[in-house]
Design a protein around this nucleic acid. Structure first.
Lengths: 207, 207
DNA sequence: TCCACGTTAGAGTATTTATTCTAAAGTAGA
DNA sequence: TCTACTTTAGAATAAATACTCTAACGTGGA
């Protein structure tokens, strides 16, 4: 569930939150700056006082995303040991919730970064960090004996496979016409497990 | 490589091919009907004689996609036995080439089908057929002994995993900032193999 | 040759969109 | 209260966009 657009919120934050909501509902193409302004009940002039243009709003949303993602990841780091199956599954669920919250972004990702070099660099950076994180997790798993030993090439493909599932499971559901709910998210975990399981060592063959 | 927009081509086909090219380059949002018309060197009126509106053009492209995809699939069916690893890998490569040819479509898929119920129904139908095809392939593989026996739930997850990789490998490359070329497409095959291999029976453990 | 019909050009329009500008309205401290 | 600064409203605009309309053009058959 998205945070409510509270009336005691600063105008700048109202704009960001309303933009996220409208973008999620209708896509960035269909939502104009005037739409956003009138949805909040402020004037276009006011909106342009806070943001130079629409692109600027999207960049601000991306910054919020980055901060939120980091925050959520810290929470998991404090709860689980890296390289454990629990940590991986929890991270997967966390990523799905994140992707759902900002779903317009993943839906239009390629187009968005095609038209904004700053956004492109920003996303690529985050993307690299995530892949590094997964590779690190795999190394931890190998070190603690829960993941089978594999060579570097295989490790790369394995990390790609995992990240691909995590990154696009929501899109997969959407383009397949399936509702996003607890059941279908759980199915995502199943798919992830189907990819992971064969590379886990014997003892941890959960359900 | 995309087919050239030949000068002896019918206007309707010129519109479709030019639209594909421009959509691929700039996204559907940035390309107006006037852009398409002037890129071909015809009048807007002429374009609207052949198509009711922009949506209509996109639908026509989708129909072309469907026909082209079916045609390509037939070619593979005539060359390989279903359920063999060769058939799967060739189909994967074929899908990547298909996705590249119509790359704007996959990039904007969710937004496109969100705004056009006809397109939505069309894509869902194709999507279902592809999943059925994969499930059938798995069954064939189990029957001919190249794929390990698994229960129906597992089979479902396995099919989802395979289709997810095939469907989004190109997007994965693009959002990761990687060029699409033979090398990166081959890496896609590696990722697919990473998912497949553990579920294959011993004898076919190709490199 | 002429007719009919499919095709095309190009001007025109209503609407939308992003953005700017100016003046007014808070607001907070001295 | 005065003052200076931030925030806001709302009118205005330039450009783009999707789409329409009418008149002309071309072509193939009678």
């Amino acid at each position: 569930m998205l945070a409510k657009v509270k009336s005691d919120m600063k105008t700048r934050d109202k704009i960001i939150n309303t933009a996220i909501q409208l973008f999620n509902e209708q896509g960035t193409k269909a939502v104009s700056t005037n739409h956003i302004a009138s949805a909040i009940g402020i004037s276009p002039g006011n909106l342009y006082y806070h943001f130079r243009n629409k692109e600027d709003i999207i960049r601000a949303i991306f910054e919020q995303m980055d901060a939120y993602g980091l925050e959520q990841y810290q929470i998991i780091l404090n709860k689980y040991w890296p390289g454990t199956i629990d940590a991986m599954e929890q991270t997967f669920i966390m990523i799905q919730e994140f992707n759902w919250r900002y779903r317009f972004f993943k839906r239009e990702l390629t187009t968005l970064i095609m038209n904004d070099p700053l956004l492109e660099e920003g996303f690529h950076s985050t993307n690299r960090q995530m892949l590094d994180m997964i590779r690190y997790t795999i190394d931890c798993g190998i070190a603690n004996g829960s993941i089978k030993v594999m060579n570097d090439t295989k490790k790369g493909s394995f990390a790609d496979a995992i990240w691909l599932v995590a990154l696009f499971w929501l899109n997969y559901l959407e383009v397949g016409g399936e509702e996003v709910n607890e059941l279908t998210l759980r199915r995502g975990s199943d798919v992830l497990r189907t990819v992971l399981q064969p590379y886990l060592t014997g003892e941890i063959l959960a359900k």
